[in-house]
């Protein structure tokens, strides 16, 4: 007897518990499906579409799609790599990502995905949008130039910290991350120990006075590609 579900990813048989998503099952099996908005411990959101896989011939986001018996999942195909590269390219050009002066560089998941995909430069023209910085809080600042609208901070603050400090305002190209107070970050009850402060995949939410602590060469993604820790379980 078994309440395990069996399905395949790129022809490899994978087992999943009932209720697990494709992404969770793949992680446990040591198969890396690239992702950006998804983070273990947060409610899946399915917004970035980087984790898109082909399920029985149709595109689905692996972070939200539950695994089902016998499903055939494609992950590492040329088509999906192109799709994922395109998303990362677009995220780079629609913000102001100055990696050379960013505290998060080397530990940034957006940058790490671009490295893993071997992107030397985005293929789209840069938009240079005019975005704001909120440095009013004594310990934390928001740099919206770097925000990729993944909603990790929104979810962490709401579901883990029980505070609901962050929310989105605006639509389309004007969408941005905002705080629950009518004014600025210092007017909120955000605290430096909040989980919401640690979940940002890029350098949009930064703790003050701790940047550049780790030298170049020893940062998270300097020598090991993102996802290699998941793939290492498989070897």
């Amino acid at each position: 007897m078994s309440d395990k579900i069996t399905f395949t990813i790129d022809g490899v048989e994978v087992k999943a518990a009932k209720g697990q998503t494709i992404l969770q099952a793949a992680d446990e099996a040591g198969i890396y499906i690239p992702r950006l908005c998804n983070m273990s411990g947060l409610i899946p959101y399915g917004s970035c579409r980087v984790c898109t896989v082909i399920v029985n011939g149709r595109p689905q986001s692996a972070c939200t799609q539950p695994a089902a018996e016998g499903m055939i999942v494609e992950n590492e195909t040329e088509e999906l790599l192109t799709h994922r590269k395109n998303i990362v390219d677009m995220l780079f050009v629609e913000g102001n990502h100055y990696c050379m002066s960013c505290e998060k560089s080397g530990n940034c998941e957006l940058q790490a995905l671009a490295y893993r995909f071997g992107i030397a430069a985005p293929k789209y023209p840069y938009m240079f949008p005019n975005r704001s910085v909120d440095a009013t809080h004594p310990d934390i600042f928001i740099d919206r130039n770097r925000c990729i609208l993944c909603a990790r901070c929104v979810r962490a603050s709401r579901d883990l910290d029980g505070k609901g400090v962050f929310e989105f305002v605006g639509r389309g190209p004007n969408k941005s991350i905002a705080v629950n107070a009518n004014a600025r970050l210092k007017d909120t009850n955000l605290d430096i120990t909040d989980k919401a402060v640690d979940v940002c995949p890029v350098g949009a939410i930064i703790k003050k006075r701790v940047g550049f602590a780790v030298p170049i060469g020893q940062r998270k993604y300097d020598t090991k590609p993102i996802g290699s820790e998941i793939e290492a379980q498989n070897k």
Partner: peptide
């Protein structure tokens, strides 16, 4: 270029 040689900083 190998992984270590594509860096943005």
């Amino acid at each position: 270029l190998p992984y270590e040689l594509i860096k943005y900083d």
